[in-house]
Computed example of a mutant assay.
Amino acid sequence: MTLLFVAIGAAVGAPARYLTDRAIQRLHSDRFPFGTLTVNIVGSFVLGLVTGGTVTTTGVYALVGTGFCGALTTYSTFGYETVRLLEQGAPRRAVGYAALSIAAGLGAASAGVAIGLTVWNAA
Rank of each mutant, 00 (worst) to 15 (best):
A14D: 14
P91V: 10
G53E: 14
T20V: 05
L117E: 15
G112S: 09
G9L: 13
T20N: 02
R22G: 06
T58W: 12
S29L: 13
Q88Y: 06
L49R: 04
T51P: 00
A90P: 00
Y61F: 11
R22H: 10
A103P: 00
G89D: 11
L117V: 12
A108I: 14
G67K: 05
A71H: 09
I24M: 04
T56G: 06
V95H: 01
H28P: 02
G96D: 10
V119W: 14
V60C: 06
Y75F: 15
T118V: 13
G112R: 05
M1W: 13
I8H: 00
A94Q: 01
A123M: 12
R93T: 07
S101R: 04
G52Y: 10
P15T: 12
A14Y: 14
G107N: 04
R17A: 06
A94S: 03
A23E: 14
V119Q: 05
G53L: 09
F78K: 00
L117F: 07
P33S: 06
F68Y: 14
V50N: 01
H28Y: 15
A71K: 04
G35L: 03
A62C: 09
F34A: 05
T54Y: 13
R26F: 12
G70M: 09
L85Q: 02
A104Y: 11
F78E: 00
V95R: 00
L37A: 03
L19V: 11
T51G: 05
L47G: 03
P91N: 13
P91R: 07
V39F: 01
A114S: 10
R17N: 08
V46S: 01
A11S: 05
G96N: 04
D30W: 08
G67A: 07
T77A: 03
S110E: 10
V95A: 06
C69P: 03
T56K: 04
D30G: 00
G59V: 09
Y61E: 07
S76K: 04
G13E: 12
S101M: 10
T57V: 06
S44D: 09
M1R: 02
R26P: 01
L27D: 13
G59L: 10
I24W: 01
P91M: 12
Y18C: 03
F32V: 08
A99E: 06
G43D: 11
S110Y: 12
I8K: 00
